[in-house]
């Protein structure tokens, strides 16, 4: 049996069939959404704020979960056992509260003030007439987003190479081509609808695989006995340091500042429906996360030694376990779920980056005194999506190390910069433009400083102190500067009439 375990992942006709079916589905969605997305820039970038509550829930949830959940969390649970649970708990709880409170304020405000990007919101909330705040935000968003997109393509290429015995370069080009086809044509509607399908692929794979892998091992008791025999701490969720636990829970702070997740909230048709999205999003998040944790635990029982995994890499656990236990067609679903995770994140990041270029840089900074026809803006947006994909590919090819260096900080950097400043912008009337700029800079710099100071890095994940620094800098500078004079009106736009929340 063990000879069969130390194997590589390889797809057969069933798996290829399931995977190709999935690809055809996402491309068909792109074509279906083309007409709607061609209407105007609001339709192209936020679906005209007409998205259904179910679509918004799933799209917001899977846009935030890249291959990190499928390959990273499963590998983490394999290595650490039950204590990996804290890595998923933080973001699920944070996102529940965001759907219920933060998102509703954001959606209401954005409708009243016609904001379709995150920099649009900041510029409007703080009367950013000279464009300084918008420029700082666009710079932060573009640097991190293009790196993110590039890294997603590289991950997709590697997954293609591992699953279908292809050259990684060909895999990267294929991943980029599929994403660009449905994003260019279908815009936000296509991205959201494909996210919804991708959410189904991911949840099916993450529920079916652990159930079958555990039952093939004679049930959960047998798996737990095996884990206890290997190492008692695998069954102890408290077997980690206090700093590590805080760091794991702190991953959730990143959800408050990643614009490709936040823009989902702006797109819903009725802000009151975000309550329903909160419920669906939380159930989905819990199912996917605990599915990933049980895959890691079952995987450890099946492969007690990491050397039994291809390249002795725990990130290969998910596809290898699937190949061992699932029917080839279901294995195809598992392979598709890896691409679903990668593409659902890459497409959302691509649209956010493109909206920053077209809406923020071109329409609001370079041509701010002109009225530009909507159709022309949509054409420019499509061109920018293609240019950004080429830039991400070129960037990844030219400087892969730099890309992965930037991605190390992307979740934390964006979370620490945008998270505290946006929360204060929504909830604290004394927040000022200068305070927000200070918070953006402090959050980003603290992330880098903490990461590169070994004594600090060992204590806790950099996002936690950087978030606190962003919050502190925004508050301190705001206390010494004057908030916009129309703050009361701005706050009124965030609240439901007669029901402040």
């Amino acid at each position: 049996m063990e000879e069969a375990l130390a194997t590589t992942v390889s797809a057969n006709t069933y798996a290829i069939g399931a995977f190709v079916g999935y690809l055809l589905l996402v491309i068909a969605v792109g074509v279906y959404a083309t007409r709607f997305s061609s209407t105007g820039i609001s339709e192209f970038f936020v679906g005209g704020r007409k998205m259904n509550r179910f679509v918004v829930a799933l799209s917001a949830v899977v846009s935030g979960r890249s291959a990190w959940l499928l390959l990273g969390v499963t590998g983490m649970a394999y290595k650490m056992g039950a204590s990996a649970v804290w890595a998923v708990t933080g973001y699920i709880v944070v996102e529940l509260f965001m759907f219920l409170y933060y998102a509703r304020r954001m959606r209401r405000y954005c409708e009243v003030h016609d904001c379709i990007t995150l920099p649009d919101f900041y510029a409007s909330r703080f009367n950013d007439r000279d464009g300084l705040l918008r420029t700082v935000l666009v710079a932060i968003i573009l640097i991190f987003m293009v790196s993110y997109i590039s890294a997603q393509f590289v991950s997709g290429g590697k997954a293609f190479a591992a699953s279908f015995d292809l050259d990684p370069g060909t895999g990267i080009l294929l991943t980029a081509s599929i994403v660009v086809i449905y994003t260019v044509f279908g815009g936000f509607l296509a991205v959201s609808l494909t996210d919804m399908f991708q959410a189904f692929f991911m949840v099916v794979a993450l529920i079916v695989l652990p159930v079958i892998a555990i039952s093939d091992k004679n049930g959960l008791n047998a798996v737990l006995l095996e884990l206890g025999r290997l190492d008692e701490t695998l069954l102890d969720p408290t077997a980690l340091s206090f700093g590590a636990a805080i760091g794991f829970l702190g991953i959730g702070l990143g959800s408050t500042g990643n614009p490709h997740v936040l823009v989902r909230y702006i797109s819903i048709d009725d802000p009151e429906q975000l309550r329903f999205s909160a419920l669906i999003g939380t159930v989905w998040n819990v199912l996917m996360a605990w599915g990933a944790l049980f895959i890691g635990l079952a995987g450890r029982a099946w492969f007690p030694d990491v050397a039994m995994l291809p390249n002795a890499d725990t990130e290969n656990l998910y596809p290898v376990l699937a190949q061992l236990h699932l029917h080839p067609a279901l294995f195809g679903v598992v392979v598709a779920s890896i691409f679903a995770a990668i593409m659902s994140t890459a497409d959302s990041q691509l649209l956010v980056a493109a909206s920053s270029v077209v809406r923020d840089v071109y329409e609001k900074i370079l041509r701010r005194d002109e009225v530009i026809p909507q159709k022309r803006l949509v054409i420019y947006s499509r061109m920018v999506v293609i240019i950004l994909v080429l830039a991400a590919l070129f960037f990844g090819w030219l400087a892969e190390e730099l890309v992965f260096w930037l991605v190390l900080f992307a979740w934390a950097g964006l979370g620490a910069a945008i998270g505290p400043t946006s929360i204060l912008a929504f909830y604290w009337k004394k927040t000022t433009r200068a305070g927000v700029i200070a918070g953006l800079v402090a959050g980003t710099l603290t992330t880098l400083f903490w990461y590169y100071t070994p004594a600090l890095k060992q204590t806790v994940y950099e996002l936690v102190p950087a978030f606190a620094a962003g919050l502190l800098a925004t508050v301190v500078v705001s206390l010494f500067t004057r908030p916009p004079e129309d703050t009361e009106q701005k706050f009124a736009a965030m609240e439901k009439p007669n029901s402040p929340d």
């Binding site: 699920i92 969720p237 939380t282 929340d501």
Partner: peptide
């Protein structure tokens, strides 16, 4: 015991919290 609490009770508790908060918010906004 802590294993059961985190791997089974915790996810159920998060979902129950979501139901409670949504119900509470609905009641608040009438």
């Amino acid at each position: 015991m802590t294993f059961v609490l985190t791997m089974f009770v915790l996810p159920a508790a998060i979902i129950l919290l979501a139901f409670f908060l949504v119900y509470y918010e609905r009641g608040k906004s009438g």
